[in-house]
Simulated assay, not measured.
Amino acid sequence: MERRAIAELVGTARVYGPEELEWAVRRRRLERLASVLESTREPVKLFSTMECYPRRERLTLRMEHSPLAVAYHDAQFRREGLTGDSVGEGMAFFNLSMREAHALLCDCGYGGFSLLRMPLSSLIARRARKLAAKRNLAEWRELAASWMDAATSRLSAWKKHTA
């Protein structure tokens, strides 16, 4: 493998900065969603039995005071391209799978939340941050590569030391 400086590659290849990576955008947006939810003064409502709707109908679900409606009221999200407050638009904007959207937006995953004396918006924000913190395959690959590089350099140093 030949190593080159980023400046050399810019003319021949597309070089992604951290702000352009899909997973970095997802992470930043979910973190912002959590902050927006925590700062909202209105009570937030969750969708009820989302999983019971056919997929096509589920994507069009929308509701006043849902986490997606709260996000849509945020001017920064609209500038970045959030076009509405339906489940489908939210999934596309925040890069969520149907399973992740269900876990974040449906009331069936928050059983007994009223017993915790914590605002629902804070619980949803906590889940949004948990989704944001998930590592994707590319991140695991980078992490493994850095571990392997470190192990290889330690092994080389050890061989030089013992030789």
Results as ranks from 00 to 15, higher is better:
2 E>A: 10
102 H>A: 11
70 V>Q: 02
19 E>V: 05
39 S>N: 13
141 R>N: 02
99 R>N: 08
130 K>Q: 11
131 L>N: 01
43 P>Y: 10
125 A>I: 02
21 L>D: 01
138 A>F: 10
20 E>P: 00
144 A>V: 12
77 F>L: 05
84 G>P: 04
31 E>D: 03
105 L>I: 12
48 S>R: 12
120 L>W: 04
39 S>M: 09
11 G>Q: 11
74 D>V: 07
77 F>G: 00
34 A>G: 04
161 H>W: 11
139 E>P: 01
1 M>N: 06
147 W>H: 15
129 R>L: 08
29 R>T: 02
47 F>K: 02
138 A>T: 03
34 A>D: 01
22 E>I: 05
15 V>Q: 06
157 A>C: 02
103 A>T: 09
29 R>Y: 04
93 F>C: 05
85 D>W: 08
109 G>P: 02
62 R>H: 08
117 R>F: 14
10 V>Y: 08
153 S>T: 09
83 T>L: 15
30 L>R: 01
41 R>C: 02
148 M>D: 08
118 M>A: 11
145 A>K: 12
159 K>N: 03
50 M>N: 06
148 M>I: 12
147 W>A: 14
159 K>C: 03
52 C>A: 13
91 M>A: 07
3 R>P: 00
57 E>C: 04
55 R>S: 11
59 L>N: 05
144 A>Y: 14
4 R>K: 13
18 P>D: 05
97 S>E: 07
128 A>W: 01
34 A>L: 04
70 V>R: 00
133 A>T: 00
73 H>R: 15
15 V>Y: 07
86 S>K: 13
34 A>K: 01
85 D>Q: 13
47 F>N: 00
123 L>N: 03
94 F>R: 03
163 A>Y: 10
69 A>C: 07
51 E>V: 12
145 A>G: 03
152 T>E: 14
116 L>D: 03
4 R>Y: 08
28 R>F: 04
33 L>S: 03
77 F>H: 02
106 C>F: 08
67 P>C: 09
38 E>P: 00
124 I>G: 01
104 L>W: 06
56 R>T: 05
80 E>W: 12
24 A>V: 02
65 H>Q: 13
143 L>C: 10
93 F>D: 00
16 Y>E: 09
129 R>G: 01
53 Y>M: 11
60 T>Y: 06
82 L>Q: 02
88 G>H: 08
158 W>V: 00
119 P>A: 12
36 V>C: 04
68 L>N: 03
64 E>P: 02
119 P>F: 11
43 P>R: 14
97 S>G: 10
160 K>M: 08
29 R>K: 06
126 R>G: 02
76 Q>F: 06
42 E>S: 12
155 L>P: 01
120 L>G: 03
43 P>Q: 10
121 S>H: 08
17 G>M: 05
73 H>W: 11
12 T>P: 00
15 V>K: 07
27 R>C: 04
8 E>K: 10
139 E>L: 12
14 R>M: 05
137 L>G: 01
157 A>S: 12
118 M>W: 09
12 T>C: 03
62 R>Q: 12
42 E>G: 03
23 W>V: 10
23 W>N: 07
84 G>M: 09
95 N>P: 00
99 R>F: 11
21 L>H: 05
44 V>H: 05
84 G>E: 07
75 A>P: 06
110 Y>L: 04
131 L>F: 13
116 L>F: 15
103 A>M: 14
54 P>D: 13
159 K>H: 07
112 G>L: 08
87 V>A: 10
63 M>K: 15
82 L>C: 04
13 A>Y: 09
